[in-house]
Design a protein around this nucleic acid. Sequence first.
DNA 1: TTGATAGGCAAGCGCATACTTGCCTATACT
DNA 2: AGTATAGGCAAGTATGCGCTTGCCTATCAA
Lengths: 107, 107
Amino acid sequence: MVDVFRALDDETRRTILDELALRDGQTLFEICSILAMRHDLSLTRQAISQHLGVLESAGLIATERRGRSKFHYFNPAPLADITDRWPTEKTTERRGPNENRTDQPVR
Amino acid sequence: MVDVFRALDDETRRTILDELALRDGQTLFEICSILAMRHDLSLTRQAISQHLGVLESAGLIATERRGRSKFHYFNPAPLADITDRWPTEKTTERRGPNENRTDQPVR
DNA sequence: TTGATAGGCAAGCGCATACTTGCCTATACT
DNA sequence: AGTATAGGCAAGTATGCGCTTGCCTATCAA
């Protein structure tokens, strides 16, 4: 199991998420060619496959196998772990003010 | 310069942000004792100092020096880099629908 | 069946990162 | 002055991570 923070700490994985957000349901080979063409990333298929494994382990992508192809879908749900942990003005408006935040001395 | 994603990829640094969110403006020694007392983290002062350096380099904390003390303040602004890059339902309501997101075939 | 396509598994390499250790500077107190 | 406090700098170690290489399995078409 990989947490969201580690999964996001890699520019290649972030670019993969970008591309899946633009066009969902791509296969490993499609992602490989797009990374090579549009991002000048000359990585091996196995490298990309491992990145996809990390992203899936973190819950950021879901996969579906049909025949010999495997389709990858972006799932932004785990990103809520970040905004829930440190709410900012933009992410609090549906949850109300944060009542846990105080400025009391420790102890 | 450290980006937000790398800075967040460490549980100790995330805990530091938690504590600064609870009580802002703490010094290095205060953070050290709180991590030891409330989180069972037995790290050296230098380790914590390096973590604070990473967080500051990522813009997640601001510092202010007075006398021989240095106070640390949580700045959640860089977290917007994450929600802006992959908008979710909760983070889009002030920016309107994302018009860049399409499902057109590539090329 | 034979061959091509789509992907998986596992070992190994190199480098980055977290942490320690040791020493140093600067501010405050007596 | 002398001493304690708050923090910084730099080198060394060790584990983790990204990536490659090599080989293997499964599906589809001829």
